[in-house]
Design a protein around this nucleic acid. Structure first.
Lengths: 353, 353
DNA sequence: CTGAAAGCGCTTACAG
DNA sequence: CTGAAAGCGCTTACAG
C-alpha cells in the first residue's frame, strides 16, 4: 500500500491562480465555447505554470467511463501476443485510451480474477487475446462491457472474434509455389491439435486440388513446432519422395529445420527445392540459409482491427461472428533465386555490415 | 468516445437491498471492525446477489492513489521486454496493482505524451523499461511519482536502476568453460555499441586473465546479433586459430550460427569445440544442434525485483543507484557430452515427441 | 453498532 | 460570459 501521495495540483489551484471559479477554469481547459478568450488564456497560463494534469479518476467518475481498455492475454510469452498487443496499444493510443494489461497465463482462476479487477476499474471494453487461433468458451456473460476475442474464437456466435486467416495464408504460399513452377509439394507442419495447423493444411490441399497436383506423401506431416521436427520430417520426405521440389512449412522454425536438412543432403535451395515458411518471424525467416519466403500474419494490423471492432461495439449495437484477418506473402530467396547470385554453390554467406 | 455506460450496480443499491446506509454497507464490505456480524452477512449477500463491483475510480479519488503502475517500454517487440514485463505484471498482481502499458517505440515525443497520460491517470509509480542495458537520460524530473529504471540505467545516480548483471553472467559462462578443461577460448559477440556486449567481454577477459589464459584471437570479435555473424566469425576463427577449443558467444543466435559452422567444418561439439550462448532463448538454445549451454538472465525475476524496489520507494524515501540482477548458467550438451550419447557422430537427431 | 454529513477532483446544467 | 450548486461513487471521521 503506497504512502499517501504528495498532493498534486488541482483544478481549484489553477482557478485560484487565474482568479476565476473552478467551473470557469474547467470550461476554459476543456475548450468550451462560452468562455471569454482573455479568460481562457489566463487559465491556460495558470495551468501551464502549475503543470496541472487533470485527474483522470475524477473525470472517469463523472463520465462513467475510465478511458481504459482491459487486455487479458493467455500467454504473453508466446510469439503471437506481442505483435498483436503492439497493434492494439497503438490503435488505442490514437483514441486517447490506455490499456490495462493482465496476463492470465492460461489459468481460468487468474482470468476470472482479472476480469473482476478490470470491471472494478471500469474499463470501457475488454480484449481477450488468445495464444492460438482455436475455439474457446465465451466469457462475455460475466463481463458488463463490450468484449472482442482476438487470435482465439469465442464459442458463442454472438461474440465477435478476430482471427488470423490461416487458410488464406496457406493459399498464398502454395499458389506462389505452383506459380513458380513447383509440382511436387510436401507440407510439414506443427501439432494437429492446433486449428491453425489444420486450417493451413486445408488451404494447402485446396490449392493443390485446384491445380490437379498431388500432395507429396499423400498427407500433411503433422509434428512439432520446432526446427528439430523440420529436420526429421524433411529427411523422411527426401528419402521416400526424392522428386519433391518444394516444402510448404507450418512455421518459420520448421522451415529453418527443413532448410538445414535439405542443404545437408546436398540439394540446393531454391534451385532444386523451394521452401516456404509461415509467421515471418524475422530472427528465423531472415537468418535462414537462404532467407525464407514466408507468410506474414499481419498481426499488428490484426490488433488494430480488433480495436476498431471494439470501438464499433462501444458506440453501437455489437455484432457477432468471426472476422478473418488476411496475411501476406513475403518473398525471399528460398523460393526464387536472388537476381545476381554470384556463386550458385550453397553456403555463400553475405558480407558484414 | 464510448456511449454512456449502462449504469452499473452501485454501493447504494447494495445498501438499499440490505436495508442499511451506504456508510454501513461500505464498512461491511471493507471488513471494518465496527459492524455487527449479522449486518455484515446481510450486506455481503446483497452485494453478491447484485454482483456488486466497487468503483475503483471512486476509491482512487478518495485515497489519492489509483492502484496502478505505469510501465513505459522502449520496444516491446524486442526479446527482453516480455519476460521482464511478465515478472513485473506478476509481482504487481500480488499487490493488487494493475499495470498500464505504454510502448513508446523509442520515440521521445511518444514517451513524453505517455508520461503525461499516466500522471493524469494518477499512477502510483512508474517503471521505465529499456531495450538494452545502456545508460540513458533521466526522466524522473518530469514525473511526480517514484520511478524505477529497468534494463536501462538512468544517468542520474539519484535514480534507481535495475540491470542485468552481464559481467557476472559472462563470468559464469567462462568459468564453466575453464572448469571443464577448455584452454583456447574465443569470444564472438554482438555490436560493440551495446554496453551488454562490452560488459560480457569484460567478464570473459577477467576470468581468462585470472586463470592465466589467453583470449583466442587477442580480442573479442564484435559484430551483429545474428546467426549469420556467428557463422562468419566462427569460420574466421577456425581458419586463423585452428586450435580453438571453445566459443563463448554473446547471444544464443550468434551461438547457433557458430554451431552450424563448427559442424560444417567437421568439428564435433562439444568433443572438439565447446560452445556457450547467452540469453537462454529457448527457441534457439534448446533447438540448436547440440542444445546450447547458455546464460539465463533471469529476466522475470529481474522484473519482480524492480517491483520490489518500486514498492520500497512508494513506502519510504527512495534510494538511488544501480542494482545488478544476477543470471544463472544453464548447462546443455554444447559444453558437456550427454551422459549416454550412443552415436558420437554429429547429426544424431533426437527422436520425436 | 449505525447513519448523516463532508469531501475526494472534476463537470454540467442552471441562474444570473 | 461567469459562478454557485449538485452530483459522479465511494470512504471516513464524527454524532448518536
Amino acid at each position: 500500500m503506497p504512502r499517501k501521495r504528495s498532493t498534486s495540483v488541482t483544478l481549484s489551484d489553477v482557478a485560484e491562480r487565474a482568479g476565476v471559479s473552478v467551473a470557469t477554469a474547467s470550461k476554459a481547459l476543456n475548450a468550451r465555447a462560452e468562455v471569454a478568450a482573455e479568460t481562457r488564456t489566463r487559465v491556460l497560463r495558470a495551468a501551464d505554470e502549475l503543470a496541472f494534469q487533470p485527474n483522470a479518476l475524477a473525470r472517469g467518475l463523472i463520465s462513467g467511463s475510465s478511458g481504459t481498455i482491459g487486455l487479458i492475454t493467455d500467454e504473453l510469452g508466446g510469439r503471437f501476443a506481442i505483435p498483436i498487443l503492439l497493434g492494439v496499444e497503438n490503435a488505442l493510443g490514437d483514441e486517447q485510451m490506455s490499456v490495462l494489461l493482465c496476463d492470465a497465463r492460461g489459468d481460468a482462476i487468474r482470468r476470472r480474477h482479472y476480469i473482476r479487477t478490470l470491471v472494478s476499474r471500469r474499463v470501457d471494453g475488454l480484449i481477450i487475446l488468445g495464444d492460438r487461433n482455436d475455439m474457446r468458451p465465451s466469457l462475455t456473460r460475466e463481463i458488463p462491457v463490450p468484449v472482442v476475442y482476438v487470435y482465439a474464437e469465442s464459442d458463442d456466435p454472438a461474440d465477435l472474434s478476430v482471427l488470423a486467416d490461416d487458410e488464406g495464408g496457406a493459399r498464398l504460399a502454395v499458389e506462389h509455389l505452383v506459380g513458380t513452377g513447383r509440382r511436387r509439394i510436401a507440407h510439414i507442419t506443427g501439432e494437429e491439435g492446433y486449428r491453425a495447423a489444420r486450417d493451413r493444411a486445408t488451404g494447402c490441399q485446396t490449392v493443390l486440388r485446384e491445380h490437379g497436383l498431388p500432395l507429396v506423401g499423400g498427407a500433411p506431416l503433422y509434428g512439432e513446432w520446432t526446427q528439430s521436427w523440420g529436420r526429421r520430417a524433411a529427411g523422411m520426405v527426401l528419402r521416400t519422395s526424392p522428386d519433391v521440389d518444394a516444402f510448404f512449412c507450418g512455421s518459420d522454425q520448421i522451415a529453418t529445420g527443413v532448410a538445414e536438412t535439405v542443404r545437408e543432403l546436398g540439394r540446393r535451395v531454391p534451385e532444386d527445392v523451394a521452401i516456404v515458411g509461415y509467421d515471418n518471424w524475422e530472427v528465423f525467416a531472415a537468418q535462414c540459409r537462404p532467407p525464407l519466403t514466408t507468410v506474414d500474419l499481419n498481426l499488428q494490423s490484426l490488433g488494430a482491427t480488433a480495436v476498431r471492432h471494439l470501438f464499433a461495439a462501444l458506440n453501437a449495437a455489437p455484432t457477432g461472428g468471426a472476422v478473418r484477418h488476411p496475411g501476406r506473402l513475403v518473398i525471399r530467396e528460398s523460393t526464387v533465386a536472388a537476381p545476381s547470385s554470384r556463386h550458385p554453390a550453397a553456403g555463400a554467406e553475405p558480407g558484414p555490415r
